[in-house]
Design a protein around this nucleic acid. Structure first.
Lengths: 343, 343
DNA sequence: CTGAAAGCGCTTACAG
DNA sequence: CTGAAAGCGCTTACAG
């Protein structure tokens, strides 16, 4: 019942552990193992179903061939699919992926980074939470390979792959303006995260560039941590208090979903009574009737760029100290919720 | 830059590695370490930021405090959320979770099981693919703790947590019959998996128990691997060929989503022209207008039951040889797509 | 109360 | 071409 080891293989073949190890690690040629010996070893390994113990290998080499992926919420459409693509891409390169969700909680994020560190991950892909600046600085100081995705830590230079939130928001707002909307409500959450502040800046800039008066910028912010019910209530209040609005811009997809609910409660029809656009796509927006215009995150591109960048750093093709930032362009997908305005 | 080890801590304190190890593992009392020594050790560990190397610990103990979660697709709503809950619950018990997606591919599933095996996971939660019977039998023979979720392997006795697919399907069909629908089309995929065959059986039994004639059972099966386009096409063909149908039962949520598309293409209104129900909930069904009646999987219950069962087996509170099966009752959620029939 | 030492299963520099 | 042996960082039975 005991697990079989290299020693067992070596003994059975009257050879040394060294030889077995060389064969397993594909160093037969390099180390001059004869083809006959190599075959003997390979055959027995297959016959016995031997698999090298990775704890021993990690302990010895300090490399685990594992990367740690820390996301906000693996149950979420965006992160779940990013995770899936990263895993496939990592596997192609001989790496496994360890993932875990922070739920946007600083303590959880810190614990995860530490725990993965102890498991000797070779590198990280991290969606940062707001308060983990110190941990990130420590990783940097200790020269551990990592790349930040989705959001940055203010004032910290790191490798990153993020969306151009400013541009996406600017273009999405412009799309509304081009189609004749003038009184656009912007609904977002209270947040210091760059992704959220950039989205608001892009919106404001587009309004400004179009020469629309400042009074026509209507912004509602809600608390991320409030219940869905409470958020919808405050949206309803906002919508009723601003009957002049001809369009709504939701800064995230979950706000968009709640917003659609809120509009129904106000008996407003999309797009006849009011147009709607949202940042971040999801299945719902595509299949809803009317379907919703969005600034979409190219999931595949984000996932592949981040794992590729990380692997480069791990393999030292890219110096960790020379940080690289990839800024991905969002895709404006025009659907039924924001048609050219008639009047 | 070198990582700090127990040896370093011991040396700096003029004590032995043994003492440090006992403190770290909370065995001070049991082993009679003096409180003073214990405090000294704890303080230095904190000061130096020491973390025990888990590869060494795993190698020594053979336990990794890690469980492997093998799902069909981590990017999918159901599995993503199951994974999240399992992770939280495992963490509470001091375990980490390693997850990975099979994409319903036998080879991938086999590789994952083996790879996790080498990483010394203490147990598995697995959504089986069709062809991995041998691997499952091997785990069983070698007494590795595992539980199957979502689907079973025919003729293999294991621990499992599954949905009562038969009952869900039976009840969902009955709901249609109760509301006056008589000519119900059942749309499913070709599959030997118990979950799919049970769903069909439940449907057939409900029809039979209601005394509806056999001719009124209309079943369409499509290939899971076909393109969305192709599947929708065959649905359209089926719907047009059976204009007498007054309701459609989709056996999975992705079929339901495609089906809604197909009905639109046929210019049929839900529920005025035809009622719709689907197995498996998702966000879309809830928010769509009209919203769709479903047999929902209680995600939280499934996740918690499976991790609890696995932990019991790992901790030997439950013998692996005495298999336990938890059968979770689906929840019928009645929405707008299947109202009482007028006429 | 505490320490010296074996051993988990590998990799690899060194020796022949 | 191949082998003996050190050492990665822990845990734990044993000794005192």
């Amino acid at each position: 019942m005991k697990k079989i080891s290299m020693k067992d293989i070596a003994r059975e073949l009257n050879t040394s552990i060294t030889t077995v190890s060389f064969v397993i690690n594909g160093k037969s040629a390099e180390m001059g193992i004869s083809p006959a010996t190599e075959k003997k070893v390979r055959d027995l390994i297959k016959k016995r179903g031997f698999n090298p113990n990775s704890a021993a290998r990690i302990l010895r080499t300090g490399k685990s061939k594992t990367i740690g992926l820390i996301v906000e919420d693996i149950g979420n459409y965006f992160f779940g699919n990013v995770a899936k693509i990263i895993e496939v891409e990592a596997n192609k390169n001989g790496y496994s992926v360890f993932f875990s969700s922070t739920e946007n909680n600083d303590d959880k994020a810190r614990q995860l980074i530490n725990k993965m560190r102890n498991s000797s991950v070779d590198g990280y892909i991290i969606t940062a939470t707001q308060g983990i600046k110190d941990e990130i600085l420590k990783l940097k100081k200790e020269n551990v390979p990592f790349v930040l995705i989705d959001r940055l830590i203010p004032d910290v230079e790191t490798n990153y792959v993020i969306l151009d939130n400013y541009l996406g928001s600017y273009n999405l707002t412009n799309h509304l303006i081009d189609n004749g909307y003038r009184k656009i409500g912007f609904i977002s959450i209270y947040s210091e995260m760059s992704m959220m502040t950039e989205r608001e800046k892009g919106f404001q800039k587009a309004i400004e560039d179009a020469g629309l008066p400042a009074q026509e910028r209507h912004v509602l912010k809600v608390n991320f941590s409030d219940s869905e019910e409470k958020i919808i209530k405050s949206m309803v209040k906002f919508i009723k208090a601003n009957p002049q609005l001809d369009a709504l811009f939701f800064a995230t997809n979950y706000l968009g979903v709640m917003g659609i609910d809120a509009l129904q409660k106000c008996h407003l029809k999309i797009p006849a009574d009011i147009a709607v656009v949202s940042f971040d796509d999801n299945d719902l927006f595509r299949l809803l009737s009317p379907s919703i215009t969005v600034a979409a995150q190219p999931i595949k591109e984000i996932a592949i760029q981040s794992i590729d960048l990380l692997l480069k750093v791990i393999k030292k093709e890219q110096k960790q100290s020379m940080t690289v930032g990839e800024i991905i362009k969002p895709q404006i997908i025009i659907r039924e919720s924001s048609p050219k305005r008639k009047k």
